[in-house]
Write a protein that binds this DNA or RNA. Structure first.
Lengths: 195, 195
DNA sequence: GAAAAAAAATGAACTAGTTTAAGACTTTTA
DNA sequence: TAAAAGTCTTAAACTAGTTCATTTTTTTTC
């Protein structure tokens, strides 16, 4: 089996057990996608056709506000899932751009195959139930931190939680994620490093 | 069938179809709970034993920061779900208080019955998959708004999204949800009303 | 229904984070 | 490998939101 397929099967197998046949069936529903550094996986205005699992590389998802300032909603590296679940599910145009910050490789599942998957292997309802449950727990935490922590505290949290991501992204993008300007991010970092 | 049971069955039936027997089985796994205004459904430090569906009333969930300032993570009224999913799933002590702001009635499912439910009626994997998916979509939006909108914009959003909640809660609690002080909330409201 | 307690409004002094601008450093491109 | 473009740093002036203190209004309690 390919390395990328092994990675996604291992990811799924954390929550459900699949037979060999089911693994093959699942893999047959996936599409391989490569995105070069600085290329877009998707852009605002499109209706998202796929949800993606990353097997290699790093991507950022962001919206642009009325002044054209980017607000980064997520970074994603190997073994993470990415996409715009709201657009994928509701079939409404997305407000997100997803751009590769390194040459990346992904496995995508189309909306049609996603629906088919639940019919063919109902166990996947459980997989996604648990996956969404866990994502939900981290977004609840993040939405609380956004309103209750200072920018400096959010930066310290991020570094602690994603030590493997912090040195793969620019300071400017991190500022867009934390919700502050790059200038203030620069101040915070030099302050935290001095402590 | 009791009104409260009818309400929860209708809620579940939006995503999955249940036979009469399954409905009865599901209801048998639920526990009725009443909470008086200003009483706690749960408190920080406890390990959450239940997830709740509200059949009557209104509750708020909040954490206290290091200075003892409350940050409200959610309001919930009839036909909403509430609880601390992180503590419920991980069996770690919760950091949340959930307090009734009106006399309230709820249906709780214990962790043991929640696990049993998936064995007895696997269709519920699908129900929770969709429920968590939808919650996830709204928390992703909220966590982005927390970092990309001003307090005034967040207030206007809240009023638009939850017109049925805004006049059942105090301005002070709304401030705790928006992530600002009650004083600044007061200023925003008088400004927005003047517009 | 009077007294007490809590919520809301207002204002002045303050602070976390923004804006604008300019220079130094790093990466990309031709 | 030079020039162009993007990123990072620093600093001064500014603004969104806080803090603290006081008064008014509303709600709760006995």
């Amino acid at each position: 089996m390919k390395d990328s397929h092994k990675l996604i099967i291992d990811n799924v197998s954390r929550f459900i057990d699949l037979t060999e046949l089911e693994k093959q069936k699942y893999i047959s529903l996936l599409t391989e996608v490569k995105v070069k550094r600085r290329a877009y996986l998707m852009q605002a205005g499109e209706i998202t056709k796929y949800e993606y699992f990353i097997t290699k590389g790093c991507l950022k998802a962001y919206t642009l506000d009325v002044d054209g300032v980017p607000h980064i909603s997520m970074f994603a590296v190997e073994d993470y899932w990415t996409g715009d679940i709201a657009s994928f599910i509701t079939k409404q145009p997305s407000r997100y751009f997803i751009k590769a910050t390194e040459d990346s490789e992904l496995l995508g599942i189309s909306r049609a195959n996603y629906d088919l998957l639940f019919q063919e292997i109902p166990k996947f309802e459980r997989f996604y139930r648990i996956l969404y449950q866990r994502s939900l727990i981290s977004y609840i935490r993040r939405s609380n931190h956004g309103i209750s922590l200072t920018a400096e505290e959010r930066y310290i949290e991020f570094k602690k939680k994603y030590p493997n991501i912090v040195n793969r992204i620019t300071q400017k993008d991190l500022a867009g994620y934390i919700g502050i300007t790059p200038e203030f991010m620069s101040k915070i970092i030099s302050k935290v490093n001095r402590m």
